[in-house]
Computed example of a mutant assay.
Amino acid sequence: MPKDLGKRVAYQRRIARMTQQELADAAGVHVGTLRKIERGARGAGDNVVESLAAALGVDPSVLLGNRDRADARVRAAMPSLSAVIAAYEEPDDGPVRQLEQLRTDADEAVSWRLAAQYVRIARQLPALVSELIRAFHLAPPEERPETVGLLVAALRAADAAAYKYGARDLSARLVDLMRWAAPYANDPLLDATVAYVRAETFFAASAHAAGLRALQAAIDKAPTGQDDAEIAARGALHMRAAVIAGRAGSVEAADYHLGQALRLADAVPEDVYSGTAYGPDSVRIHEVSVAVSLGRDHVHRALDVANEWAPPHDLPAERRSGFYIEVARAQLWSGLPRDAFESLKVARRIAPQHTRDHPWVREDAATLRRLRRADAESLSNFAEWCHAGE
């Protein structure tokens, strides 16, 4: 057991103003187990440490007392994941569990992605993706559509970690594998999901005009039914098209797609549809992203939203932290450095792994440190925490 793990857990719990029972419930561990960990009477495996860290809103390294960065641990898993997907047509031999068990693990991977738990994803997904690829090849016809859906969900979780930590070539290969697998399900909703994820490759290449065309084509092919999932599929594509149109500098296209996303969001409850959070709150977050993407005279729209609204706690952590990261950039551009720093700290509390290794956070923290050289230690500590300037 890492030295002083229990003391660190207890300290972070007190900072979070949580009782032992509250932390145990939030982390999904027995309160007796937590008590033993805190007094040093027993150890804690990786899963327990990660669960406690997620419940406390800190990076696992804070509890482990080491300086291992999340990005180093995520990147260490990338070769294994790369090897797995390279053999997608002829996977290694191995066990394949029942569909119900695979479904449970794929759902858990989706929850990690939404909660920005990238270390967990990197550690667990190579084995799960490998098993799901084997399951795909062995599935009887009646099980193949669901097996494909689970494989795409797992690949998407793996892609989230690859994309966030700069492994853009691996991310593109994961997206290509999703595009290869999806047609076997014959499911328009899955096709729409893959088109949504594929937009990452255009963001990564700054090919925004091409990405907007690809998303428009996906919108044209999206299901036109009126149940919540079908409406959300169209709305999510419009939501993402609005952001990429903003990056392309097309105000007219950004406003059109944002308007369509808002209209469709009013027809469904806020929820996670086919792995994508969508609804009125998610679209409002993207309204901020569009304003920041357009920049210049549009930044005030981001500040207007932030001044009157905050993301509710039941939205996925990655989406909420992204909101405050975008707002911080708008505040910094608007000459509000203190407000920007406060927003970055909120993003950190919500999703430490997402915030710590976000390139905008590093850029903006470095800028804030330059602007406020005489400022207190907290800003310097934050900049060091996210390795600003590296």
Rank of each mutant, 00 (worst) to 15 (best):
W333Y: 07
I350E: 03
S334E: 03
V327G: 04
V290K: 08
E270H: 14
L262M: 11
V288Q: 03
S321P: 07
H257Y: 10
A242F: 14
I325G: 07
S334N: 02
Q331D: 08
V272Y: 05
P316W: 03
D255F: 01
G322E: 07
H358C: 07
A241F: 09
R320D: 07
G295L: 04
A229H: 14
I285V: 14
Q226F: 03
P269H: 09
I244Q: 04
E287A: 13
D339N: 13
Q331A: 08
E230Y: 03
L264G: 01
D297C: 00
H286D: 13
A265K: 12
G259P: 09
G322V: 11
W309C: 10
D255V: 10
D255Q: 13
V299P: 00
V283Q: 06
W333E: 13
Y278K: 00
A267K: 14
K345Q: 15
H313V: 11
R356V: 15
R240G: 08
V290M: 11
A306W: 05
A232P: 06
A232K: 08
P359F: 01
S321K: 02
K345P: 00
F341G: 02
P312Y: 04
K345W: 02
A267V: 06
I231N: 10
G279D: 01
S282H: 13
E308R: 15
W309L: 07
R296S: 14
V288H: 01
P337D: 02
G225K: 04
D297N: 08
L262S: 14
H354A: 06
L332E: 11
A317R: 12
D271R: 15
Q331H: 04
A330F: 09
W360C: 03
F341W: 08
A347Y: 12
P312T: 13
A261Y: 10
Q353E: 15
V346L: 14
S321F: 05
H238G: 12
A261T: 08
D227E: 14
P223E: 02
D357P: 04
G249V: 05
H300D: 13
L332D: 10
E287H: 15
G259N: 10
V327W: 02
G235R: 01
P223I: 13
S282Y: 06
A248H: 03
L264N: 04
E308S: 11
D297R: 06
I285A: 00
I325S: 06
V290A: 09
I350N: 04
D357A: 14
H354T: 00
A261L: 06
R296Y: 10
D271K: 13
P316R: 05
D255P: 01
A306S: 15
D255G: 05
